[in-house]
Nucleic acid binder design. Structure first.
Lengths: 329, 329
DNA sequence: ATGAAAGCGCTAACAG
DNA sequence: CTGTTAGCGCTTTCAT
């Protein structure tokens, strides 16, 4: 790798001039040409590491997500990447695996790597974020809230739960169950509260095992659905509070030969790789990509020096209605 | 952020001694304690950027994949991450989007960021990789081949195609179509050749539109399947040469009410989020995660100084058979 | 407009 | 075993 000194020598100027050319600072047209020629010939490109050390900052932002294999988070990452890429920033994607220790580890890395900023879907409400913010590094929370007073972009999860349950009720289902995620995860809890609000409003009894807590993934949805089917009076419809559990639930239904709309299914989250006609099920689409682009723009604002009080942006989900139950039902 | 000088001052030693403590070089036990105490108090952690500039290398590796939203590549990324994480390395995930320009861009970044190495699923056979290898940075190709003499870990795609088509033939299907990806992508081409080999061996005529080229994604699979169904004599089975096109094909079938095993479906790749009973379809499981772990281990070997000639590791796919066609068929 | 020189934080000779 | 020092490649005063 050629250095700025070699370029300077070849161009017959000082290293400072080369630096100025590359940073768009005023330099005589004549010397600009000299420098350009020399650097092209040497295939020079500035050493980012040295720049970073000198500038105490880099054009890299970290994105910490809990599960890189969940399409929701990859779509979010995709949104972040689009915005950053356009702004000339690079993205470091870190998989925290729902593990607070890993989250802390990656936050430390963001710190010592002098990253320009961090977007994270937090798994823990610890104060490790403070280490970054104390140094003036902007942090934007996405999808999940932190206890801290920082920028955040989130989904109205309560409304999503209400929308899902209401869609099923309006379609005519009357025994609506809910497959919820782990209690600790706030997003799924809010969605569950939305479901509960709807079923209790209609006087439906939700205390007979219709609320199933499961892990947040496909197998969690499977076992929860199996438990629901084993009830004395199984539900005639089910809301799942995330995409993966929805996949598991639908898999089980398809295995026992009960297909929507024989049973009502509303999934909160998208099913980008569903292998059935998606018309039969109700989907409450979460704006994953939009979450990412919004968060990235907010972060870039902060990096650019925006100093206004912390903002929280709440995006809304959009519903695609499934079919109504068969008349026989 | 405390620096090594502040720690040294507080501990009453030289900066070099602090550096030695943090790098496990021989230092008297007494001073080690002093340094530890001082650095704890100051919450010191070494500045990675400075280390990188000094050492001309970092404990970061880049992973370049063409589509972060494809479960195959996220599983691969997950495998890479597991191995790197255990070895204390961090991963920078870059989405090349099947775009050679983006690939070049990220390779440049890997270079100027002094990354320890790169794992990439190449989209272009250009010589940009040379820039890294010339500087002694190891590069491992994964999933797809490069023209260069570097480490690679791949799948036996021809065999995967043969396996898929053979499974359908053995199940009794006789008009086996193939939904293939773009011609430029070598993996899908090899799989297509495998399919062709099987159908021609059995004397089946594959020249009546049974080979459909489509884009590599869900919508590609959809339009290809629609084209196949519109034929005068539609196929009674279909092989798709990747996971996403498989999803699209199955979606279309489910929409028109033809479900496997009424039609035979063999998908090369996994369907982690399939919302039907996966028993009905044949899946040729690609060892995505294993591909990642293997590549990461090879890269770490090279980073550690391993100097043997370039190796190519070929992993094999494993099949899960679907159901045979109904007797009526 | 341009050059000389200091310094970002760390590590590796080199002395001692 | 430990301290002093030079220097990784770049940017930025401070002079000129």
């Amino acid at each position: 790798m050629a250095t700025i000194y070699e370029v300077a020598a070849k161009a017959g100027v000082s290293p400072a001039t080369v630096s100025r050319v590359f940073n768009g600072l005023p330099v005589s047209a004549e010397k600009i040409d000299l420098v350009r020629a020399a650097s092209d010939e040497l295939r020079y490109s500035p050493n980012k590491t040295a720049q970073r050390l000198r500038n105490q900052s880099s054009e890299v932002v970290g994105l910490l997500i809990p599960d890189i294999e969940n399409p929701f988070f990859t779509a979010l990452a995709r949104g972040v990447e689009d915005v950053l890429q356009a702004a000339g920033y690079s993205l470091v994607l870190c998989n925290t695996d729902e593990d607070p220790d890993k989250e802390t580890h990656y936050l430390d890395i963001a710190n010592s790597e002098n990253m320009a900023g961090v977007i994270l879907a937090p798994v823990a409400e610890d104060g490790d974020i403070r280490r970054l913010t104390d140094r003036g590094r902007p942090v934007v929370a996405v999808d999940r809230d932190t206890g801290l007073n920082i920028d955040a972009v989130m989904v109205d999860n309560r409304a999503a739960g209400i929308t899902a349950a209401t869609a099923l009720w309006d379609a005519g289902y009357r025994r609506i169950a809910c497959i919820a995620g782990p209690l600790e995860i706030e997003t799924t809890e809010e969605r569950t509260l939305g479901w509960r609000q709807v079923v209790t409003k209609h006087g439906a009894d939700s205390s007979v095992g219709y609320l199933q807590h499961a892990n947040y993934r496909v197998d969690g949805g499977r076992s929860a659905m199996q438990a629901l089917l084993a009830l004395d009076e199984p539900p005639d419809a089910v809301v799942t509070t995330n995409n993966l559990m929805g996949v598991g639930a639908i898999q089980v239904l398809s295995e026992v030969g009960i297909v929507p709309p024989e049973i009502g299914v509303a999934v909160i989250g998208d099913l980008p790789f569903a292998t059935l006609s998606p018309r039969a099920i109700t989907q409450v689409h979460l704006p994953a990509r939009h979450l990412g682009t919004t968060a990235a723009k907010m972060l870039l604002d902060r990096i650019a020096g925006d100093n206004q009080p912390a903002r929280t942006v709440v995006l809304r989900a959009e519903v695609t209605l499934g079919l109504a139950p068969l008349a026989a039902s």
